[in-house]
Design a protein around this nucleic acid. Sequence first.
DNA 1: TAGTTTTCTTGATTTGGATCAGTTAGATTT
DNA 2: AAATCTAACTGATCCAAATCAAGAAAACTA
Lengths: 253, 253
Amino acid sequence: MSDPNVISFDKIKVACKNCSLSTLCLPMGLAPEDVDRLDAIVKRNRPLQRGDHVFRTDENFRSLYVVKTGSVKTYSQCPDGSEQVVGFHLPGEILGLDAIQTNRHGCSARVLETSAICELPFDRLEDLAGSIPSLQHQMFRLLSKEIGQDTEMLALLGKSTAEERLASFLMSLSGRFKRRGFSATDFFLSMSRQEIGSYLGLALETVSRLFTRFQDEGLLKVERKHVQILDMDGLQALTNHQATCSDQAQAPS
Amino acid sequence: MSDPNVISFDKIKVACKNCSLSTLCLPMGLAPEDVDRLDAIVKRNRPLQRGDHVFRTDENFRSLYVVKTGSVKTYSQCPDGSEQVVGFHLPGEILGLDAIQTNRHGCSARVLETSAICELPFDRLEDLAGSIPSLQHQMFRLLSKEIGQDTEMLALLGKSTAEERLASFLMSLSGRFKRRGFSATDFFLSMSRQEIGSYLGLALETVSRLFTRFQDEGLLKVERKHVQILDMDGLQALTNHQATCSDQAQAPS
DNA sequence: TAGTTTTCTTGATTTGGATCAGTTAGATTT
DNA sequence: AAATCTAACTGATCCAAATCAAGAAAACTA
């Protein structure tokens, strides 16, 4: 009999049909028997520790990866050695999509905290999509969603101020946490100020100052990684957006 | 007998198998008989005039569009009325990919000059992809390519200076023209300084000044829309990249 | 072809955010 | 628990690019 306080590795190996992410992830909209077929090709490796790589730039592309628990950053290395963060990924979000066309990963992905990652061998996934129309459809949707999010981010970086960028970032995170069943107003950031700054095109000092300012303005309470949003509407107003619609609920079509 | 100086509309309605873009566009890597099946679902509408919309934000998504000749900008409208350019599209490039998942266009697309646009009804394309594995593969690649380009652009906007942005933009255009059989060093910009600035996150005055500076430095010759690159290596050096690899040649896999 | 509008260029000034520098407070190690 | 290390905060200064302001040159238009 095992110690009930120790979470066994096996418990992390949840089948797709029992996974809490099934409404966010690839299985969405699939018939139960098709979910089983998908499940059969998923590799569930042991959890990665903070700093471990899921994949690195220029590695051969074999699989897509889905975050099951934890969080991941993707980044590209600059010639000068510094890194440019290009994305943060929460449970249910997929990694490696940009590598399909080049057959090589165009960026690196490393986990920000202990994370469970599902691996989906792409050739097998592609075969399966050819024989399950709803899976093919879901994959097109997934790729499309990624493009939509990138486009939105492009618009943000192309135009807005530091204030608007950080506000949008926080609203985006809040919405994504909420959809995953976590609090929309009280959460921990798994990334550093430096990483947020890189992602938003700001210096880390600017990020830090903005957090302080947002707090002084009563919009939120922040203590290091711990953020509590106190005035969601006020924060939303700063984003100058109708809504931060990235990662919105996917209505089956 | 028709006037040989008048280009008839029929001549623009080239079948995919005779189209010069077939190595850049969806038919790439398809067997001839499959190209014919694809060809059968393509709608070839009459050319659009400068300023005409291909689609508008919030319109229902029915089709993807491919630029056959001319050029298109995609942009999103800001609450304050101003527009944010999110992309420029040359022949062989595809529009509307972000709408697959939402079933609504997330941005507007309008042509920058007289342009011929092929329309691909998405439901029929999806059906076809289900029965032609190489078409499914090509579509995944196409979506993936778009993600890769967006990611690259994100990295550019997240980090670099005005100089690096414009240099990267010009190198990107140059490479894309070259791949389409046009001169890599002598071309016309179909977009305004204002639109370039919007896309690159710069004021139009900054773009104008940079063109002047690049010219003073002997990197290029510019007269309004007409650009001639005189020192490709020098311009490349400003980008601080190994290579501007967006829109690279697609080796069949 | 003169008049109007739009686009582009150039100069002067301002400013948001970067950079530099130093401090503080957790976290980790010993 | 002291010592070390790292991430976060804050202040001072600087600068690249925005903004403001004309003017010039195309591109329409009547």
